[in-house]
């Protein structure tokens, strides 16, 4: 466990030492702030009109009109950016020929994998933390419901962890970072759009596909529904993909 943390710390350190993190974080924050201000502006415009014509004042839901869309926007932005965060995990180690250092140390492969996973999710958590100024802003100025906001953030974070595990899998397969990024982006996007057509089907397969799709578990959480079956889905997903990655790395040893 100690070595897991040592590896995670080194990986995070190398993130913060490289310009990649700062570029990603800046772009992420810019997009987030832009959509946040846009949504806030349209919300205040509409509630102003509602007050004037209907006399209802603040009865428009801040959660529905600002919090939910901004969380979905954040999820999409992360979908685009996580592959760039995870692409280096194993690809760079292979390219720099540093993997023998980890493999010849008294460290279990599980610990290496877990360390990389923690480092990447840590970076994502850091980005989400930086963007949470907008939530604080809302709480200061308005009266959003806190619980849906929290489940929504948790949902987006768990989704990110799923994408991180996919990214690690892609990165373990190749020493080319671009291939790793494209592969993990494709996998993540596929899981995202898998849910699109499902609403119209009612067959057994439709239900299976709906269950696999990440959207069908993210949407309830963003809307404030906290269901342990969704948590189970995310946990199983992450465990399964990390297990696959573990097997890939192990089999590469034998070759």
């Amino acid at each position: 466990m100690r070595t897991t943390w040592i590896i995670a710390k080194r990986d995070m350190g190398s993130f913060f030492a490289s310009p990649v993190f700062y570029v990603i974080a800046t772009v992420f924050l810019f997009l987030h702030s832009f959509t946040f201000l846009n949504l806030l502006d349209s919300f205040s415009g509409q509630s102003f009109q509602a007050e004037r014509f209907l006399g209802q004042g603040m009865s428009l839901s801040l959660n529905e009109m600002v919090v939910e869309p901004i969380l979905f926007n954040m999820a999409v932005t992360l979908l685009l950016m996580i592959p760039v965060i995870t692409m280096r995990s194993f690809s760079e180690e292979k390219k720099n020929k540093t993997l023998p250092l980890l493999l010849s140390s008294p460290v279990h492969l599980k610990e290496i994998l877990l360390g990389k996973f923690l480092a990447c999710t840590g970076v994502v958590a850091m980005m989400m933390l930086l963007s949470s100024y907008s939530a604080g802003f809302l709480i200061l100025l308005g009266e959003p419901e806190i619980n849906p906001l929290l489940t929504g953030l948790l949902g987006v974070f768990l989704m990110s962890a799923c994408f991180v595990s996919l990214g690690l899998l892609a990165s373990s397969l190749t020493e080319n970072q671009i291939i790793a990024a494209v592969l993990s982006f494709g996998l993540a996007l596929f899981l995202w759009i898998l849910g699109w057509g499902v609403e119209n089907t009612s067959s057994g397969w439709g239900e299976v596909v709906a269950y696999i799709s990440i959207l069908s578990h993210l949407v309830p959480m963003v809307r404030g529904v906290f269901d342990t079956s969704d948590l189970m889905y995310f946990a199983t997903f992450i465990f399964f993909v990390l297990f696959l990655t573990y097997r890939v790395l192990e089999s590469q040893r034998w070759r």
Binding site: R10, G13, S14, N96, K97, T98, L99, L101
Partner: peptide, 9 residues
């Protein structure tokens, strides 16, 4: 054969 060094460290 190739020293396992992280060039950014």
């Amino acid at each position: 054969e190739n020293p396992p060094l992280y060039p950014d460290m």
